[in-house]
Simulated assay, not measured.
Amino acid sequence: MNTDVFITCAVTGAGDTAGRSEHVPVTPEQIAHSAIEAARAGAAIAHIHVRDPETGRGARDPKLYAEVVDRVRSSGVDVVLNLTAGMGGDLVLGGTERPLPVDERGTDMAGATERLVHVEALLPEICTLDCGSMNFAAGGDYVMTNTPDMLRAMAKRIQAAGVKPELEVFDFGHMVMVKELIEEGLIDDPAMIQLCMGIPYGAPDDPDTLLALARQLPRGAVFSAFSIGRMQLPTVAMAALAGGNVRVGLEDNLYLSRGQLATNAMLVERAVTILEAMNARVLGPDEVRGRLNLQKRW
């Protein structure tokens, strides 16, 4: 069991959730405020997506990221910023009989440089790197697309920027990619890995699978784990028991309990309660920086 645990709050995500809960932040001001409140509740890391303020849909406009980051950094609240680099790998095929041309309404494919414009401009301490392709929860003809060459190119740019990549592992094959990136010298020690559980077509969120993935971790890696929906909060306990850290937040789950919509701060507070009831200590931002060898930017 890990007795010194840090909490990441995934504040908003890019999924179609804004219409299901009034607490899902959409505008840069709302996203920054929610990240600040999560930090005050005990989150050491805020994982940030941005959304189109008009439609609520996921976006990757660097100006939106810049406003969120500026608001958080100028707030006086200390939190490690973790910006997503997952946008730009969305492929929706045209159908079962004619996969090409792709469906342009849902496809958003960008090159390595474009996917990292906001990271290289804003220099957060952490950014995510999804370590493989998969049929994702949206179903249909959607594929989350991250080829080995794309991941290597992105890892090189992230390393050159002095940003720590959080390596997102959705299934066992993604761990192979993680190990290759480490062996090729593209990931600085210690590797930071996120085990993403319970997403349809990826690794299920049962304890056996979590432990099996944890046993595949590279030596010296620091890892967190999360699940989606109703299993988010139980996975807080499972992740700590497996030796890891935890992630909660409205990107992955909208509810505190059956029928009760949550805020990000509520989910962080519940995670703190679970961990402290297990006699685990919740780490602050500076302790996390020391553990992960992060470069504080502000």
Rank of each mutant, 00 (worst) to 15 (best):
D4Y: 02
V5Q: 10
I7M: 01
C9T: 10
V11A: 05
T12P: 04
G13M: 13
A14H: 12
T17I: 03
A18V: 04
A18F: 11
R20T: 00
H23P: 00
P25S: 09
T27P: 02
P28V: 00
A32C: 08
A35L: 15
A35G: 15
I36G: 00
I36D: 00
E37N: 07
A39R: 09
A43L: 08
A43H: 03
I48N: 07
H49K: 08
R51W: 03
D52T: 01
R57E: 14
P62C: 08
K63N: 12
L64F: 09
A66L: 03
E67D: 02
E67R: 02
V68F: 13
V72A: 12
R73G: 01
S74D: 07
D78W: 02
L83C: 03
M87Q: 14
G89I: 13
D90N: 15
T96C: 11
E97T: 14
R98M: 06
P99V: 09
P99S: 14
L100A: 13
V102E: 04
E104M: 10
E104T: 00
R105C: 05
R105H: 10
G106K: 04
A110Y: 13
A110H: 11
T113F: 07
R115Q: 11
L116M: 09
V117L: 15
E120G: 08
A121H: 15
E125N: 02
T128V: 09
T128D: 11
C131M: 14
N135K: 09
F136L: 07
F136R: 10
G140V: 07
D141M: 04
Y142W: 13
V143F: 15
M144N: 10
M144P: 00
N146G: 03
T147A: 08
P148T: 03
R152C: 01
A155Y: 09
K156C: 15
R157H: 06
G162A: 07
P165T: 05
E166W: 12
L167K: 06
V169S: 03
F170V: 13
D171Y: 07
G173F: 12
H174M: 15
H174F: 10
M175C: 11
M175T: 10
V178I: 14
V178P: 12
L181F: 12
I182D: 04
G185Y: 13
G185P: 03
I187D: 00
I193D: 13
I193A: 11
I199F: 12
P200N: 02
P200Q: 03
Y201T: 15
G202R: 14
G202E: 15
P204I: 08
D206T: 06
D206M: 01
T209W: 06
Q216K: 07
R219E: 10
G220C: 11
A221I: 13
A221Y: 14
V222G: 07
I228K: 08
G229K: 02
G229N: 05
G229V: 01
P234R: 14
A240C: 05
N245C: 09
N245G: 03
R247W: 11
V248M: 12
L250H: 05
L256P: 01
S257Q: 09
G259D: 14
G259A: 13
Q260N: 13
N264Q: 08
A265Q: 12
R270E: 12
R270V: 02
L275M: 09
E276K: 05
A280I: 02
R281M: 03
V282P: 04
L283D: 07
G284D: 15
E287P: 06
V288I: 00
L292S: 02
L292H: 04
Q295N: 09
